[in-house]
Simulated assay, not measured.
Amino acid sequence: MRKKKKTAIFIILIALMIFVINLKPIGRMMFPLKYYDYIVKYSKEYNLSPFLVASVIKVESNFEKDAVSVKNARGLMQLTPSTAKWASEQMKLEDFNVDMLHEPMLNIRMGCWYLNNLKEEFGSDMEIVLAAYNGGRGNVKKWLNNYENSKNGVDLHYIPFEETDKYVKKVQVNYNI
């Protein structure tokens, strides 16, 4: 009986090793590479980590270019029409319309521009930048000016919006993966 058990365990271990060797790295399974070139290009252009951008895309749309949220945010990086219109003006994009948010190249470019814009305003603390990306820059300003949320007006110690708090944590987990 012991010999059969050892043989079975050995066979299972060999099968597992073959299976694992043939698997794609886990990061590639979670972050499809079909937008890799755009992610790298615009991350570099806007001084962002490509892993951060891929993590935002993963959490926002799970890499679905035609995603539309209940708040009408669109595309891979889930930009709302009002934010996208404002960003297109700031970026001096001509002939922009919200249907263009489903074009991966433009969506990633605008999303990276917006993340960088938030980074310029709030500094390099990505938790604050992500909170502003999800919860709005106006809300983050209020939170930073409220002692219950920020003890020093610079660091965010508590995010009062549960959705935004969960969002920041999800992006951070994906970034670490």
Results as ranks from 00 to 15, higher is better:
Ile128Gly: 07
Asp66Cys: 10
Leu48Asp: 06
Leu52Asn: 07
Val171Asn: 04
Asp95Pro: 10
Glu89Cys: 15
Ser69Ile: 06
Val140Glu: 11
Ile159Asn: 01
Leu101Trp: 00
Glu148Gly: 10
Thr7Arg: 08
Arg137Asn: 14
Leu118Tyr: 01
Glu94Tyr: 05
Gln90Pro: 13
Lys85Gly: 08
Leu16Gly: 02
Met126Tyr: 00
Lys85Cys: 11
Lys85His: 15
Phe31Trp: 15
Asn107Leu: 08
Lys71Arg: 06
Ala67Phe: 02
Lys44Gly: 12
Ser124Cys: 02
Thr80Leu: 07
Ser43Pro: 03
Leu23Gln: 07
Lys71Ser: 09
Pro160Cys: 01
Phe96Gly: 02
Leu93Gln: 01
Glu148His: 15
Asp37Phe: 04
Lys151Phe: 06
Glu89Tyr: 12
Ile11Pro: 02
Lys170Glu: 11
Ala8Leu: 09
Met126Ala: 00
Leu52Trp: 00
Lys166Val: 09
Glu121Pro: 02
Ile21Cys: 02
Asn139Ile: 08
Phe51Ser: 14
Pro81Ala: 09
Asn47Cys: 07
Val56Met: 08
Val140Pro: 03
Asn174Tyr: 02
Leu115Met: 12
Trp86Glu: 03
Ile108Val: 13
Glu45Ile: 10
Arg74Phe: 09
Lys151Gly: 13
Ala67Val: 03
Val98Trp: 00
Leu93Trp: 03
Ser43Cys: 14
Ser82Cys: 04
Thr80Cys: 04
Pro81Thr: 12
Lys92Asn: 04
Lys142Gly: 11
Tyr167Gly: 03
Gln172Pro: 11
Leu106Tyr: 00
Gly153Asp: 08
Phe10His: 15
Ile26Cys: 12
Gly138Asn: 13
Tyr36Cys: 04
Met110Trp: 02
Ser124Phe: 09
Gly27Cys: 07
Lys151Cys: 03
Leu13Val: 15
Lys166Cys: 13
Leu33Gly: 13
His157Trp: 12
Leu93Gly: 12
Met1Asp: 08
Met91Gly: 02
Glu127Tyr: 09
Asn97Ile: 14
Val98His: 07
Lys24Arg: 14
Lys142Leu: 15
Gln78Trp: 05
Asp165Pro: 04
Ser49Asn: 15
